[in-house]
Design a protein around this nucleic acid. Structure first.
Lengths: 143, 143
DNA sequence: CTGTATCCTTAAAGATACTG
DNA sequence: CAGTATCTTTAAGGATACAG
């Protein structure tokens, strides 16, 4: 969340996946103020989510492996919007290289697909005491 | 993005999936100001992502189907953070009802798993002229 | 074209006190 | 307990001009 949980940052990443690479492309597409865009791009580069390439005077911003790894999360969010919040159908289709539309992202364990109502959250080995306390508190609330 | 693309909103939803239902639980967990929390909860209820249940004086906020449908996106984001942005392992594990950890969310088409580098975005039937123009522009940029 | 620097305006956020 | 109301502070965002 600290790295990508920001309004403009998420939109910049979306455009990056669409293929935008230049400062001007992001600016024209998003209509964001230049100083804000520069700030967000800088943050994404410092987080190694985008890489600055080419001449310093006219760089291209490209997704790193770390950045590309965000695609499932963004596609899942887009699919949610298409189904639950888009009045007239999906404006943009996400496909594979052959043009086949992607299936809805789903949660799976080794035992197969997992429905949202069956998902559980448990403290990991490195969870803080605060996290454990919170999970225990809300778990006891609705058995 | 208009519905959930907000810092506190995303954290509220995360806590809701963990099991939080009461105003006080969210407030204690997040440390957010009461007025802000009330504002965000109201927005989520108006968006039908959360439902207000029980007595008006002491309501419980529960996820609707629309809200639960967000889980894949949030899990995908969490998995990304665990792999790419978490210094010491995952603090919280996501499992199925039997305790089996969920597999990484992946993109699939009918033809099988799809790598991020092979994903394409194409204008849907209801895309605006603006969307089409943008996609065409960035597509021509890097063939 | 890609920023940086500056100013200005607005909105978000926090703190606090209060109420049903 | 779950808000509402009010006030203050802070930060974000936008507009503009300028520079490399």
């Amino acid at each position: 969340m600290n790295l990508v949980g920001d309004w403009w940052t998420l939109l910049i990443l979306r455009d990056a996946f669409f293929g935008a690479q230049r400062f001007g492309e992001f600016q024209a597409s998003l209509g964001v103020a230049r100083n804000i865009l520069a700030n967000r791009l800088d943050g994404l580069v410092r987080s190694s989510i985008l890489a600055r390439q080419g001449p310093p005077r006219r760089p291209r911003y490209t997704l790193t492996d770390k950045g590309r790894a965000l695609l499932p999360a963004l596609v899942a969010l887009q699919q949610w919007g298409d189904v639950w919040a888009s009045p007239n159908g999906a404006p943009i289709l996400v496909t594979d290289e052959a043009g086949a539309v992607l299936q809805p992202v789903e949660l799976r364990s080794r035992r197969g697909p997992v429905d949202a109502t069956n998902v559980r959250f448990v403290a990991g080995p490195d969870a803080t005491a605060r996290t454990r306390a919170f999970l225990a508190a809300v778990a006891g609330e609705r058995p």
